[in-house]
């Protein structure tokens, strides 16, 4: 397996995630795009771990850690989104302009 293939797939996934974060208005869609970027990083970690044959398996172990952190991030993120929705009745980014309490 050439290392270029997983690296290129990961680069494409990452830039798709960048597009999603910048172009979407809905907060949940932005969270999904962040997940895409994290997955691109995971693919890179796995590919380079397999290539370098690390004795500590650092790539794959770090992939597991990133997956766990992503799960925690989505949990907290959705809790924040729901709190914002309760107070402002909207989760579109460009409608959340005030910083103070309503």
């Amino acid at each position: 397996m050439h290392v270029v293939y997983p690296a290129v797939v990961a680069a494409l996934l990452f830039s798709i995630g960048v597009y999603g974060v910048l172009a979407r208005r809905n907060t949940i869609l932005v969270l999904m795009s962040v997940e895409l970027m994290l997955n691109a990083v995971n693919l890179n970690l796995v590919a380079f771990d397999v290539w370098l044959r690390d004795m500590l398996h650092s790539g794959q172990v770090l992939t597991l850690f990133v997956i766990v952190i992503a799960a925690a991030e989505v949990g907290i993120g959705l809790a924040i989104v729901l709190a914002v929705f309760r107070t402002r009745k909207a989760i579109e980014f460009d409608r959340l302009r005030e910083l103070g309490e309503p």
Binding site: M1, P6, I28, L31, M32, E35, N39, N42, V46, A47, D49, V50, Q60, T63, L64, I67, V68, A70, A71, V74, G75, L78, V81, L82, F85, I91
Partner: peptide, 30 residues
């Protein structure tokens, strides 16, 4: 394919099983 089978099953369990369901719940609740 990259021989990382454990990571693959963790990916299926946590991402497909948990994260997407959480996101669907978020879509529903908002």
């Amino acid at each position: 394919v990259l021989t990382a089978e454990f990571v693959a099953w963790v990916q299926v369990l946590i991402y497909v099983g948990a994260v997407v369901v959480l996101l669907l719940f978020g879509i529903m609740l908002t």
